[in-house]
Nucleic acid binder design. Sequence first.
DNA 1: ACTAACGGAATGAACGTTCATTCCGTCAGA
DNA 2: TCTGACGGAATGAACGTTCATTCCGTTAGT
Lengths: 191, 191
Amino acid sequence: MKAPTKRGEILQAALELIAEQGFHGAPMAMIAERAGVGAGTIYRYFETKDVLIRELFEDLQERILADILEAFPAERPLRERFFHFWMALFRYMIAHPLHFRYMEQYHNSPYGTALHRERILGKPDNPDLFRELIEEAIEQRAMKDLPVPVLFSLACGPMIMLIRDHILGFVRMDDALIEKTVEACWDALKR
Amino acid sequence: MKAPTKRGEILQAALELIAEQGFHGAPMAMIAERAGVGAGTIYRYFETKDVLIRELFEDLQERILADILEAFPAERPLRERFFHFWMALFRYMIAHPLHFRYMEQYHNSPYGTALHRERILGKPDNPDLFRELIEEAIEQRAMKDLPVPVLFSLACGPMIMLIRDHILGFVRMDDALIEKTVEACWDALKR
DNA sequence: ACTAACGGAATGAACGTTCATTCCGTCAGA
DNA sequence: TCTGACGGAATGAACGTTCATTCCGTTAGT
């Protein structure tokens, strides 16, 4: 399929260890070992551990966005796009639990806060799909009259908690249940 | 008012450092310094750093619960109790941002997962106020027909995100906005 | 009333461990 | 033979924890 490059092996090893054990449980030596690589070799591809962590995050972010954008019904009504967005994200995370766990670790760390700040304040060069969705809905007066961060949290909050609970095995989210959940979020948002 | 005990000083110092900097940013030496205490002294009060962290969590948990239970309208209708619970929790966290940040750090760590498991599976000796609220609502058929963890996340998820955003200054939650938000959550939950 | 002995509380230098990073000898390909 | 990629031992900083020592309020003896 794809010839595994050294760089790729290192990223994959870091992903697995950090997702499963957190940043604590992923020392460079262990990442090297799992990647089948000398400890020093990592530094040929990543300047520091920090850079490795950040590049892995950006890598995953791109892959996730690409997945959601695939078959995105850009021309359909708002509600349909809202549903597509969340269903796709949910399914992706359930199919790639390591990606979710990594993103979670990343967000709950000093890295995460700076990123969140950019999202809230709407960094322009990063086309934030969900943010655009919300802003369009506000224009159409389809949503409750609440500040953007509140609307944002009404949708994101439950999703994130539920994906974690599913991955940890506390609840089984099948397609029907995901749809019902997205529906409930929509009820929270809609005017 | 209260004579500050050494134990209390240590807990307060740990709370501040961990809430502000995370577990990483709070080495024992630094906690000792801020508490105005020798490094070794901490070990007269807490067996290990682990124990210190856990006892601080339990201490905060108790204080928060006591605050919510104050003036809790136990005999009023479900909806009113739901509103009281979330309004009180919200106000408490906004008034005590360090407590919130500490709880967040704790939950996003190995400590947190075990705890969450107990909550979801319903450890009986810990009277979980919100869980009881949900279960009563299910009996009354006042809520959507969804599994408990889903209902749970529909309420908790947004609240947690919003309290963080408020503390980080991304949104200003005043009493009126909090009420509107709780209302939106209720819309997500109600049948 | 004064002092000397006592003992638990407190201290912080020192220890052992863990980690990110660097260094340098080795080896494969050109 | 020369070059640069590679591995893994070496390095030093940072951390949690320990322990020999100091400090100080209390007590017992005179």
